[in-house]
Design a binder for these strands. Structure first.
Length: 578
DNA sequence: GCCGTTTTCGGCCCGACTGTTTTCAGTCG
């Protein structure tokens, strides 16, 4: 049984226990266990074999027993027992905004067990007689169901980023704002974003609120108050605006950046030191009296606990607070350290710009090199280059080198990994190239062992420098293919093949936890945009975000090297494999 | 159910907004 399935069982246990009215801390323990399992970088079965399950934070003896039960039998007795008394269809209720455990209990007592039954009951006005429910709540539930169906999916990072930029720019121009910053999962650069959270300070908050609610991009006002308003934008993403006092801006930024898990852990840490943190500031609590220690800047929140500022991308309760305490936080890679983009397409395959145009765009961004990686012949729909066309491209590439001085253009390819693990160009052709990314673009449904073997076989080829978008996922559209990433990463370490973090916002693949595991295993990473047009080069920020979420530093990433260092590094790795 | 820089027992983050109330419960982040 896979980690995601185990995590789902724990989440469902937690959900049903809340409805039952169990001890909320016990419920929270199950939720935390689910989160811990879901964010493991290795399969639970492997950890179990090494006897390491018990060492995981938030997994106690009871959870270890349940995980082992699930691994052995595929079922968990408690989970099965709870499902006996709780219709599985009712788990969907939790996805309706505004419906929480108390409401779910109420509905089940009325023998309402599916979303459809809930909708029918609300439409018929049969909910308003229930305790605590009126006509407005009924309408709220109907709107929640509609919203869940229409906007149920989270926005990708690229969409959310653009939306936040638009809001920030509009408020900067048309409202009396002082400080302003996007917080939430966007600031943490999570791969998908539930809602965009903007914080501002202003001496005229009501004007800022009014301006926000009247923005063109607002589709529907969800709620409005003097300090907080929520809207649904026309593209279906929720955006929240909060106005806070200047002396609390840092506290609010810390609070609303999250994650919830990070903040819970941080507060726990604070309570032990008689310190209180909230969105207004940080306080020392002595004998019932509170002394304000700060809150204007985010650094003050951490400093009051004796900690350095923890970068937002690390705030996931994955050991960052302990690392901060020990002075062991990584020096995360920054965009300014990236010296080149090693996976860009030109109009020779499915790109929209010629070679010189891509080179100029890269140079304008301060890069020292680009890797021109057009597709190989199998990608007929993407204009994959035959061997002859690939060699013809070389002439235009040479011309571009002369036309755009000051940037090294690497003659590369994104070569297909074929079904059996062979490559789409013969070795002697690959040997002519400066840089080779190998990617899977076919046979998504290949079963796990075969897919793993296929990819590792391709990596054993002496000319392959990097594995492109290693799991092939397209966020919201295509699941990652079934591959044993742990085995792939171990092979990469053995063979000296780099792993790509594809910065395209619907890929972000390697994802954060796999990037972190790569680092642990000594595997080098290359952050690339897979640009098909000059403006796509700016996607690099999302790849950087993912790398930072994976705790990566500049020396974990090959495209922080100079062109000369990169070439010698690639040469050494190639000779190791041949 | 989990955990330990006061602990193996006794805690576990907390404030804003909404709706249904007439002082508060539920939900959310």
């Amino acid at each position: 049984m896979r980690n995601s399935e185990i995590a789902r069982v724990f989440s469902e246990i937690a959900a049903i226990l809340t409805v039952r009215g169990e001890n909320p801390f016990k419920v929270r323990a199950y939720e935390r266990a689910a989160e811990a399992i879901g964010s493991l970088t290795e399969e639970a079965s492997a950890l179990r074999e090494r006897g390491e399950l018990a060492g995981i934070a938030d997994i106690g003896a009871s959870s270890v027993a349940k995980i082992e039960e699930l691994l052995d039998t595929g079922r968990c007795a408690l989970h099965q027992e709870l499902l006996q008394e709780f219709p599985p269809t009712a788990l969907e209720f939790f996805r309706v905004p505004g419906v929480g455990p108390k409401t779910v209990k109420l509905l089940l007592d009325e023998a309402i067990a599916t979303i459809e039954e809930l909708e029918t009951a609300a439409q018929a006005g049969r909910l308003r007689g229930l305790r605590g429910m009126g006509a407005k709540t009924e309408q709220e539930i109907l709107r929640g169901i509609a919203r869940m169906r229409e906007y149920g999916k989270r926005a990708d990072l690229g969409t959310a980023w653009a939306l936040a930029q638009a809001i920030v720019e509009a408020l900067r121009e048309g409202a009396p704002v002082d400080q302003m910053e996007a917080a939430g999962s966007l600031r943490r650069m999570k791969e998908t974003i539930g809602d965009v959270d903007i914080l501002v300070t202003s001496d005229r908050p009501e004007e800022v609120m009014a301006r926000f609610l009247s923005l063109d991009l607002v589709g529907e006002v969800v709620m409005q108050g003097p300090t907080k308003s929520s809207v649904l934008t026309r593209d279906g993403v929720q955006a929240d605006l909060r106005v806070v006092a200047p002396e609390s801006f840092g506290a609010a930024l810390q609070y609303f950046t999250g994650s919830k898990e990070h903040n819970v852990r941080l507060r726990d840490h604070a309570v032990r030191r008689k310190i209180k943190l909230n969105e207004y500031g940080v306080f020392r609590v002595e004998e019932g009296k509170e002394e304000r220690l700060g809150g204007r800047a985010e650094e003050e929140m951490y400093a009051a606990l004796g900690l350095p500022l923890i970068p937002p991308e690390l705030r996931e309760d994955q050991g960052e607070i302990e690392a901060a305490r020990e002075g062991a936080l990584p020096e995360l890679v920054e965009q300014s350290q990236i010296r080149g983009d090693l996976h860009v397409h030109s109009d020779w395959s499915d790109g929209h710009e010629d070679i010189a145009g891509m080179a100029r765009a890269a140079k304008a961004r301060g890069y020292k090199y680009i890797g021109l990686c057009d597709h190989s012949p199998s990608q007929t729909v993407a204009g994959g280059l035959s061997v002859e066309r690939l060699r013809e491209r070389k002439a235009e590439l040479e011309a571009a080198r002369r036309a755009v001085p000051g940037i090294t253009i690497l003659n590369g390819t994104e070569v297909d990994i074929k079904r059996g693990g062979g490559l789409d160009y013969p070795d002697e052709v690959l040997a002519e190239l400066d840089f080779v990314v190998a990617s899977v673009h076919s046979g998504w449904k290949t079963e796990r062992a075969a897919m793993t073997a296929r990819i590792i076989k391709a990596m054993e080829n002496p000319w392959v420098d990097c594995l492109g978008h290693p799991t092939g996922r397209l966020l919201g559209r295509r699941e990652p293919y079934d591959v044993d990433m742990e085995e792939v990463l171990k092979a990469a370490a053995r063979l000296g093949v780099a792993m790509e973090i594809n910065a395209y916002p619907d890929r972000l693949d390697l994802k954060d936890v796999h990037a972190r595991r790569a680092k642990e295993l000594g595997v080098k990473v290359i952050i690339s945009t897979d640009a098909h047009a000059p403006e796509h080069l700016d996607f690099i920020r999302f790849g950087i975000g993912t790398a930072r979420r994976g705790w990566l530093e500049a020396n974990d990433i090959l495209n922080t090297l100079s062109a000369a260092q990169l070439r010698s590094r690639l040469r050494r790795a190639r000779s190791r494999r041949s």
